[in-house]
Deep mutational scan, measured.
Amino acid sequence: GSLMYASIFGNVSAIIQRLYSGTARYHTQMLRVREFIRFHQIPNPLRQRLEEYFQHAWSYTNGIDMNAVLKGFPECLQADICLHLNRSLLQHCKPFRGATKGCLRALAMKFKTTHAPPGDTLVHAGDLLTALYFISRGSIEILRGDVVVAILGKNDIFGEPLNLYARPGKSNGDVRALTYCDLHKIHRDDLLEVLDMYPEFSDHFWSSLEITFNLRDTNMIPGSPGSTELEGGFSRQRKRKLSFRRRTDKDTEQPGEVSALGPGRAGAGPSSRGRPGGPWGESPSSGPSSPESSEDEGPGRSSSPLRLVPFSSPRPPGEPPGGEPLMEDCEKSSDTCNPLSGAFSGVSNIFSFWGDSRGRQYQELPRCPAPTPSLLNIPLSSPGRRPRGDVESRLDALQRQLNRLETRLSADMATVLQLLQRQMTLVPPAYSAVTTPGPGPTSTSPLLPVSPLPTLTLDSLSQVSQFMACEELPPGAPELPQEGPTRRLSLPGQLGALTSQPLHRHGSDPGS
């Protein structure tokens, strides 16, 4: 009898404990919600809404976190579960008819179910419309201010047509639940991603989709105040780019002037030289400038040598048109050559190039014969006009050509200096018209024969001689050997007369 009593008592207590286990969990969670309300000092109306929603959600799901349970299964099984949970929507909604099984599984994985109690606001006026909503159960109302403009029910759709707008718009009203509602919502990016994977279904979906109420604000059109608020930074940046392009296009129409201050000032006329910023005076940081632009901040801005204009002085008759350009485009679109090309026009420029290279940067340069637009006047290309890779490749080509020119210049200078040193070592320090008596009659020769300089066969020296023939050397430049009979510069000019005159010897006659 005691054994029977113990078994009955144990079973009854276990049954009672299981009955009250759900209630215990409910009270535990309710205590957490109330502690949250007390800690954050939530006001009474919002506090009442929180408690009511918790009670309804507990009775609806029995305190089970559906998302946590669903995430515990593998992905393939999750797709089947989501397809079952959203079967009513996918079967009865017209846009989803005719979709393949794979497309429906992908869509079912992207849908999220939302449960809303009465009085809950789903979308506020001015919120971004980031999702498309399908009503599965219940009814909602749409308000503009305090005026109800629409009441939607089961199988209705609200949001915005995503295929017509590249960016999400703003809501033009509040969406509030009238009863307990079940909503299926899919985010904008998720829907577009699935439709991109199934393009054959995309056309059918957009053609058959009928949005019951379009929440997009109709005033959000390009150029409206609301649109400016939504895309303020983007609009200002776009206007700045367009104004920069218009100014650079105007600059290219004036090829007669070359400016070292950047493309923003290349198009300024002579009357605007004294102004601080020219056409860019209202925004000094709008356009890029070269490193020399920092010198323009000092006094005497109108007389600054940074602004270059072609000189009108005539060229000498024998002067060549100019050196070879550094870039391939210089032959086609440049009416002034790079300062480095002028360094190779003569030997005198070679000796004085490194010492006063900055001073020569603004000297007169030889002109190319074609009066085409200036290379320095070409505006900086924006990322939309020329690819970045093209600019980098041009810079690399320019750097390689500069290296080759520097190597060639160093070799030419070394060769010229070597020839000058050899000339100085071969010439005796001094010569006299009267020579010392020699031991015999073989001493009648006034000077030792001097062998002429070897013929220069280097390509670089031939180019130097060509430049010497075309360029007029300055007075202080050293002379180079030329073709024809060679003669030492330090010898007297009348050596031929010395050989014809008898030598005057000093000596005593033994017979006297």
Rank of each mutant, 00 (worst) to 15 (best):
P317F: 15
K239S: 15
T457R: 11
R360M: 15
S462A: 11
H204R: 10
L209T: 06
A260Q: 09
E253Q: 14
P316D: 14
L183S: 01
K332P: 08
G346W: 04
A411E: 15
S451Q: 12
F213M: 12
L495G: 09
Y362W: 05
R385G: 09
K239L: 12
H204Q: 09
D174L: 09
P316F: 11
E328V: 11
Y198A: 03
T130L: 06
R236L: 11
V258F: 11
P441F: 09
A397T: 06
S289E: 14
S460A: 10
S302I: 08
G232Y: 11
E141N: 04
P199K: 04
R167L: 11
I186K: 01
S293V: 05
N163M: 08
P168L: 04
G267D: 12
V347W: 13
L365W: 12
T336D: 07
D203P: 07
F244T: 14
H187M: 06
R188L: 04
R240P: 06
E472I: 14
E328T: 12
L375T: 15
L192G: 04
D251K: 08
G173K: 04
Q421D: 11
S283K: 06
L380V: 13
R422V: 09
M197I: 06
E406C: 04
L129H: 03
I378W: 04
E297L: 06
E406D: 10
T444R: 08
L461M: 09
S352E: 06
S289R: 12
G256W: 04
E324T: 15
P510R: 10
R505F: 05
G138R: 01
T436S: 10
I211D: 02
L453P: 15
S243W: 10
P325I: 14
A166H: 13
R505N: 08
V149R: 03
V450D: 05
D196G: 10
T228R: 09
S235C: 06
T436F: 10
S393R: 08
P485T: 04
Y431W: 10
D356K: 10
T415L: 07
A268Y: 10
L402S: 05
A414M: 11
G256E: 13
P481T: 13
G298I: 08
V147I: 07
H184K: 11
L375V: 06
S302H: 12
E364N: 15
G173R: 05
D329M: 06
G507M: 11
L417S: 03
I186Q: 01
A411T: 04
K241T: 09
L395I: 08
M424L: 10
V175A: 06
P320G: 03
S285M: 03
G476F: 15
S465D: 14
L395T: 05
G226M: 10
V450Y: 13
F201P: 03
G232P: 09
V427F: 01
T212N: 09
H504K: 10
V147P: 02
R358I: 12
R240K: 10
E257D: 08
P305T: 09
N155P: 03
S432F: 10
S136G: 10
I151M: 07
V450C: 06
L398Y: 08
Q501W: 15
E295M: 04
K239M: 12
G223M: 11
T457P: 12
P383Y: 15
Y133N: 04
F244H: 07
